[in-house]
């Protein structure tokens, strides 16, 4: 596979990643949301693998393995188990209606591309044109966390943001040093488990995972 083909493939996957970020933003069902998140992880892993293969950066394979293990298999499985145990398959309510959210999302993408343009110029990596997309998916996940009212979609938004950051790391620099990637992965994993523990505590107290119940601590 020549450089240009792999670069094309990475661009394609980046576009797929962005599409998935929009799909998550518009998705109301939690189960589908988890599936989309797993797909996003898979796209991330494949694109990282292509970068690793075509540039000979062997340490990226660790990152691929971590992503596959954590974000495609383990975390979606944990989330599945959680919503099974908590019976929260209902539809997600949003603060702003979905078309409006999508429009804001488009605005964010344009902003991200404008922000990333000068930096992409400086990168000499194979994947530099995807930095804007990485930044856009970070911002879209951020938006998703803001507009969702239920605890589980907020967490998925957080994890999707982590995906975007990993993608930014591979597209700008061929990945962070291994010790850092391992540490970040550990934090994400522990974080997911703590979120899980939290869900049970929250439901025990409020009989619901709707965080509208948790707006008592106001400034006054």
């Amino acid at each position: 596979m020549s450089q240009s083909i792999s670069s094309q493939l990475v661009n394609l996957l980046a576009a797929f990643l962005l599409l998935l970020a929009f799909a998550m933003l518009s998705q109301r069902r939690i189960l589908t949301l988890i599936r989309l998140f797993a797909w996003q992880g898979a796209a991330l892993a494949v694109s990282t693998a292509i970068v690793a293969w075509s540039t000979g950066q062997t340490h990226l394979y660790f990152s691929v393995a971590l992503t596959l293990l954590l974000k495609v298999i383990l975390i979606p499985w944990v989330l599945h188990r959680l919503i099974d145990r908590l019976f929260v398959r209902w539809d997600v309510e949003t603060l702003i209606n979905i078309p409006a959210t999508m429009l804001i999302g488009i605005g964010l993408v344009i902003f991200a591309f404008a922000l990333a343009a000068p930096i992409s110029q400086m990168a000499n990596t194979l994947t530099r044109s995807t930095l804007g997309i990485a930044m856009a998916s970070v911002l879209l996940s951020f938006l998703m966390m803001i507009v969702r009212r239920k605890a589980v979609p907020q967490v998925i938004g957080f994890l999707a943001m982590e995906n975007g950051l990993f993608f930014a790391a591979t597209s700008a620099t061929y990945g962070m040093p291994l010790v850092v990637e391992l540490g970040v992965a550990l934090d994400v994993l522990v974080g997911t488990f703590i979120f899980g523990i939290f869900f049970f505590h929250i439901r025990e107290q409020f009989d619901s995972l709707d965080i509208r119940h948790m707006e008592k601590l106001k400034e006054d």
Binding site: F142, F158, M161, I194, F198, K216, L217
Partner: peptide, 22 residues
């Protein structure tokens, strides 16, 4: 303490600090 207020505080702490640190 697992009181409603403390859960709310912890959730806020977790979400805001995690997003911030991201």
């Amino acid at each position: 303490y697992r009181t409603p207020a403390s859960l709310e505080a912890a959730w806020k702490y977790f979400i805001l600090c995690s997003v911030g640190i991201a």
